[in-house]
Computed example of a mutant assay.
Amino acid sequence: MEDIVILDTGCANLTSIKVAIEKLGYYPFITSEPSIVINSKKIFLPGVGTAAAVMKILSKKKLINIIQDFKRPVLGICLGMQLFCDFSEEGNGVKTIGIIKSSVLRLKTNNLPLPHIGWNQVLFNKSYPLFKHIPNNSRFYFVHSYIVPINKYTLSTTNYDINFSSVIQKNNFFGVQFHPEKSGHIGAQLLKNFLEM
């Protein structure tokens, strides 16, 4: 059985996520085959590119309902986290997976460059299993132009002229706005924590 699945969303960063997970001693499988996805123990939903393009792929592969009904841990990375919301302002507006009642908004800053690219601090107020052995205010690597506003599912916040959700969780759905696979040993620890849940 393919226990750990990285959903093949047609993105460019699938290999770097796969390599980061393999370094932790796990053997993930990149696929969009519904019968494999439905039986997996953990799902990674990566995202690079546009919400519309990834939603189109998920819809074509008949994966949207499978994700919505999945009862084991799912980790959305970057755009993957944003897709957990029900709507994105991207383009002319995109209906997304709808696990979390929130819209994804365009990141607006007064004078900071966009997209938000680089290392930034992640501030969390409570200890969660996902943050085990990760000091508060640790720095992770970000690349994004859209944000999930702070809401009741926000576990951590990051500031880039404004505060936004950098980690969210609802039940078995976890989302990180940063790229753990590009965030050195701290990112590796977060992936390890998720894999050990």
Score class of each variant (00 low, 15 high):
residue 179 H to P: 10
residue 16 S to M: 11
residue 107 L to W: 05
residue 121 Q to T: 14
residue 149 P to T: 03
residue 166 S to Q: 13
residue 127 S to D: 15
residue 184 G to T: 00
residue 49 G to F: 04
residue 62 K to L: 12
residue 12 A to Y: 06
residue 171 N to F: 11
residue 85 C to G: 09
residue 8 D to N: 15
residue 187 G to P: 05
residue 123 L to S: 14
residue 81 M to Q: 10
residue 61 K to R: 15
residue 136 N to T: 12
residue 55 M to G: 00
residue 85 C to E: 04
residue 75 L to P: 08
residue 124 F to E: 08
residue 142 F to N: 03
residue 115 P to H: 01
residue 32 S to V: 03
residue 186 I to S: 08
residue 107 L to H: 05
residue 91 G to A: 03
residue 116 H to C: 05
residue 111 N to I: 03
residue 159 N to W: 00
residue 93 G to A: 02
residue 62 K to S: 14
residue 148 V to N: 06
residue 135 P to I: 09
residue 106 R to P: 04
residue 108 K to E: 15
residue 101 K to S: 14
residue 125 N to M: 06
residue 179 H to C: 11
residue 47 G to T: 10
residue 130 L to P: 02
residue 127 S to R: 14
residue 191 L to S: 08
residue 32 S to D: 15
residue 192 K to S: 14
residue 40 S to D: 10
residue 148 V to Q: 05
residue 80 G to V: 02
residue 7 L to M: 11
residue 97 I to R: 01
residue 169 Q to E: 14
residue 196 E to Y: 07
residue 138 S to L: 09
residue 140 F to E: 04
residue 6 I to W: 08
residue 11 C to L: 08
residue 70 F to A: 03
residue 70 F to W: 09
residue 169 Q to C: 13
residue 4 I to N: 00
residue 51 A to V: 01
residue 178 F to M: 07
residue 7 L to N: 05
residue 191 L to N: 06
residue 195 L to F: 07
residue 196 E to N: 13
residue 58 L to V: 07
residue 46 P to M: 08
residue 135 P to V: 09
residue 48 V to F: 12
residue 169 Q to L: 08
residue 172 N to M: 11
residue 86 D to M: 00
residue 5 V to W: 03
residue 60 K to N: 13
residue 33 E to D: 15
residue 16 S to N: 15
residue 116 H to N: 10
residue 184 G to N: 11
residue 168 I to D: 03
residue 186 I to F: 13
residue 168 I to T: 14
residue 191 L to T: 04
residue 191 L to P: 05
residue 170 K to W: 09
residue 140 F to N: 01
residue 72 R to H: 13
residue 59 S to Q: 13
residue 74 V to C: 06
residue 50 T to V: 06
residue 118 G to F: 09
residue 166 S to H: 12
residue 51 A to T: 01
residue 65 N to I: 02
residue 107 L to S: 04
residue 123 L to I: 15
residue 58 L to N: 08
residue 138 S to K: 07
residue 28 P to Y: 00
residue 30 I to F: 10
residue 146 Y to K: 07
residue 34 P to Y: 12
residue 164 F to V: 02
residue 37 V to S: 11
residue 15 T to C: 02
residue 59 S to G: 10
residue 102 S to W: 06
residue 65 N to C: 02
residue 84 F to W: 08
residue 63 L to I: 05
residue 74 V to K: 07
residue 78 C to A: 09
residue 74 V to Q: 09
residue 148 V to L: 13
residue 175 G to Q: 09
